[in-house]
Simulated assay, not measured.
Amino acid sequence: MNRGGQLFDQSELQDAIDTGELIAWKKKRYLEFRKTMRDTRYPCHFAVNAERNDSARYLFAGDARDRDALFKVREGLRRYLERYQSIAKRTTLVIFFKPGDRDQSEQEYRDQFWEVIEFLNKRDPEPWPSDIPEDPNDPEWEFCFAGEPMFIVGRAPFYTERKSRYTPYGLEITIQPRRTLDDISGDTMEGRHARSVIRDRLKDYDDITPHPDIGDYGDPNTREWKQYLLPTSNEESLNEFPFEIET
């Protein structure tokens, strides 16, 4: 069983494309991502800058329903977290899953997303950090793996109106370690400005207004996990965390 979890930087991907070594589904996934980040006014300038400045790292995990793919995510994320602080101040891990052989429903994508997160939690190589609450209903809770708190964003084909979360070819998960965002937290001037800019861009980019669950980490009225894989409509919300966190 291949559990390598190989990480690519931009030059390695381009070289693999140029030499024909990057197989078709991986090439299609990455080129679509690059087009979104470079050729549109994608709202999150942190993600855009990570792609343009070669501070993103990329992982191709296979089919999200495949246990082998889940082990690749675990190993790739572990490797990324070991070295992310040497990449850049702002860095992102982008995880591409292989497109299925048939169209999938929104619920199937949701199930796959949370199965990935649960798998990581149950096979976490490190104990839960002592400074992060263990209860997802605490406003200062966020997902942790290998001792690192992180912000997670899921993108999928069912987001036809919420275009900032749309990708046409299957599930995609983006991860930013919390330490890369510490200096722009919600209570800093730079952080407030950055979030204001992103929200203004969201209004122009999406065909639906920003979801009410989008908020700042630590805000008493915000639960960060509700933002991971947003509902398609603004009238819906995830009411309960989907699994029991092991710490």
Rank of each mutant, 00 (worst) to 15 (best):
N53K: 00
E108G: 00
F97E: 08
Q107S: 07
A88Y: 04
P99L: 03
F113K: 04
A64N: 07
A69H: 03
E106Y: 04
Q107M: 04
K98T: 12
R83M: 15
L93D: 11
L77Q: 08
E106C: 03
R102W: 15
I95W: 08
F113V: 06
E106Q: 08
G76S: 09
T91E: 04
F46G: 00
R79L: 15
P99G: 05
V48E: 00
E108T: 07
A64H: 10
Y84N: 08
I95L: 03
G76V: 13
R102P: 14
K72Y: 13
E75V: 08
L70S: 04
R38D: 15
L81E: 14
K98R: 09
L93P: 10
D68R: 04
F46C: 02
N53Q: 07
R110S: 12
K98N: 10
L77S: 01
Y80E: 13
F96E: 10
R41I: 11
K98H: 12
I95N: 04
Y109L: 07
R41M: 11
V48N: 00
Y80V: 13
L81Q: 10
F97K: 00
F46W: 07
R41E: 14
R74W: 14
N53S: 07
F113Q: 04
R41S: 11
F71L: 06
R79K: 11
R38W: 13
A56K: 01
A64Y: 11
F96S: 06
I95V: 03
R79V: 15
N53T: 10
L59R: 04
F97D: 09
R79H: 15
R41A: 11
K89V: 12
F96C: 05
Y80I: 13
R74A: 13
P43K: 01
I95Y: 00
R52F: 06
D68V: 09
E82H: 09
R102D: 14
E75C: 03
K98L: 10
D39N: 05
D63I: 02
Y109R: 00
D68I: 06
R78F: 15
Y42D: 02
F97T: 08
K98I: 10
R65C: 12
Q107K: 03
G62F: 03
F113G: 05
D68W: 01
E108H: 01
P99N: 06
F97I: 09
L59G: 06
A47M: 01
V94T: 03
F96W: 09
A50P: 04
K98G: 08
E75P: 02
V94R: 03
K72T: 14
L81G: 10
R102G: 11
R90E: 09
R90G: 00
D63R: 00
Q104M: 14
T40I: 09
Q104E: 15
